[in-house]
Computed example of a mutant assay.
Amino acid sequence: MELALTVLLVIVCISLITVVLLQPGKSSGLSGAIGGGSEQLFGKQKIRGSELFLHRATVILSLLFFIIMLTLTYLKI
């Protein structure tokens, strides 16, 4: 059980790193922070297409990471 969770954790970690690195940067430098930063803050820009998929994958993989780590910690005690 512990070995299977450890292997699954490694797979989730590699997937999470890959998904995070594939996401485009959201900042557009200093001009974006002054002029267009409020648009992202109040949600006027909608996420579409591959960005939506990458965002959802990041959330799901991070939740899996958290749950697997808690389970492994509980099994080690």
Rank of each mutant, 00 (worst) to 15 (best):
L75M: 13
L64H: 05
T6I: 10
Y74T: 05
L41C: 03
G49H: 02
Q23A: 09
I77A: 14
G35R: 04
L8F: 08
L72R: 00
I60S: 06
I60R: 03
V20F: 08
T6M: 12
L70G: 08
G49Y: 02
Q45L: 07
F65E: 05
L3S: 13
I68R: 03
V12Q: 00
V10E: 14
V7W: 06
L16W: 05
G29D: 04
A4W: 10
L54M: 13
R56M: 07
T71I: 10
V20C: 06
I67A: 15
L72S: 05
K26A: 09
L75R: 12
L72K: 02
T71K: 06
F65Q: 07
L9A: 13
G37H: 01
R48Y: 15
T73H: 08
G35F: 07
P24M: 03
G49S: 09
V10F: 13
L9F: 10
V7P: 02
V10L: 13
T71H: 03
Q23I: 02
K26G: 10
F42C: 02
Q45D: 09
A33E: 12
T18I: 10
T73W: 09
L30H: 04
V7T: 14
L3N: 14
L63P: 00
S50L: 14
T18H: 06
L41V: 11
T58W: 01
G43I: 01
S15P: 03
L8V: 07
V12D: 02
L64F: 15
A33G: 12
L30W: 13
L8W: 04
G37I: 01
K26V: 07
I14V: 15
L61Y: 05
L22D: 06
V19P: 00
T71G: 05
I77F: 15
F53E: 12
L63Y: 08
K26R: 14
L64P: 02
T6Q: 15
F42N: 03
I60G: 00
L52E: 10
F66T: 13
F53V: 13
T58N: 11
L52R: 08
R48T: 11
S15I: 03
G32P: 01
A4Y: 11
L16F: 12
F66G: 10
P24W: 03
R48W: 13
L41W: 05
I67Q: 04
